[in-house]
């Protein structure tokens, strides 16, 4: 579906965002792009969506090269935009229309769907994303969680084959997070490919079939199944995805690596090394 080959990109020709990055995404796959802040995950998503173009290297999508030149072709551009949907991290940038209804209608109208079909789709997608009561609201009247739903609805309404998510659960409350995670899993069951930039290791096993790990020098450090990646402590430490952490279990405060889903559910053994496990009560 996507083939990224030796892609490099630098902002303002000075600040490297990606350095010879290569990976592939197969149809129906859930791929997580993992890495610390600033490692280039969002830039990769923008390249996959044809919003920025590599300084060197190539991107192929659905067997076709994706370049600025190709996207100037109206037919190719319409086909590509219809097949790839991008949910931005910043919902405020994505929700730009005066009302929720118009926001959801924007994509399908640009793709040339007639107004009756667009109205029908708005109804269906509003029901799916629980936005029916908010259709005539202005974006400034919505909460952060509602804006994220609108952003997702405005992309889903175009029925893309691939969904790109940039930090989908960032700044969402637990209820909205859970709702979104369940929907992403459901979308994948319906045949949509998912590519997601995240540094949330807790949701990895649920949301990814495969992980591409980015190092802080903007390269691909590893690829593999979530279990494999989460088990490689040295790798996670080298890309700054886990860190030393101390916390309390009852009366015992102790420290250990933190960063994956089992971090707070592990068992306890008596303190071994002074300074590592510290009882707080006598």
């Amino acid at each position: 579906m996507f083939a990224v080959d030796a892609v490099s990109y630098a902002y303002l020709d000075r600040f490297t965002a990606l350095d010879r990055v290569s990976f592939q995404v197969a149809a129906g796959e859930k791929v997580a792009l993992l890495g610390a802040n600033g490692c280039g995950k969002s830039t990769v998503l923008k390249i996959l969506d044809g919003l920025v173009f590599p300084d060197s290297g190539t991107l192929r999508a659905f067997g076709q090269p994706v370049t600025e030149d190709h996207l100037e072709d109206e037919q190719f551009s319409a086909a590509f935009r219809g097949r790839v949907g991008f949910v931005f991290q910043n919902s405020d940038a994505q929700v730009f229309s005066p009302t929720v209804r118009e926001e959801i209608a924007f994509g399908p109208l640009q793709m040339g769907l007639d107004r009756d079909a667009v109205e029908d789709r708005i109804g269906d997608i509003a029901a799916l994303t629980e936005l029916r009561d908010l259709l005539d609201r202005a974006p400034y009247q919505l909460s952060g969680g509602q804006k994220k739903r609108v952003a997702l609805a405005s992309v889903l309404v175009m029925n893309p084959e691939v969904l790109l998510f940039d930090e989908p659960t960032a700044a969402l409350d637990p209820r909205n997070q859970q709702w979104l995670l369940e929907l992403i899993v459901e979308l994948n069951r319906w045949g949509k490919s998912i590519v997601m930039a995240t540094h949330d290791l807790d949701v990895l096993e649920l949301l990814a079939d495969r992980c591409v790990v980015f190092s802080e020098d903007h390269r691909v450090a590893a690829e593999g199944a979530p279990g494999e990646i989460l088990g490689d402590r040295a790798l996670l430490r080298s890309v700054n995805l886990v860190h030393e952490h101390f916390h309390a279990h009852g009366s015992t405060v102790h420290s250990h690596e933190h960063g994956h889903s089992g971090a707070h559910t592990h068992g306890h053994e008596p303190a071994r090394t002074p300074g590592e496990d510290r009882p707080t009560s006598p």
């Binding site: 940038a93 994505q94 109208l109």
Partner: peptide, 19 residues
């Protein structure tokens, strides 16, 4: 810049159609 990218990502090519 981000708004423009969000519009382009959903098929905007300089002539916005409305509902």
């Amino acid at each position: 810049e981000e708004v423009h990218q969000a519009m382009v990502a959903r098929g905007y090519r300089g002539n916005a159609r409305t509902l």
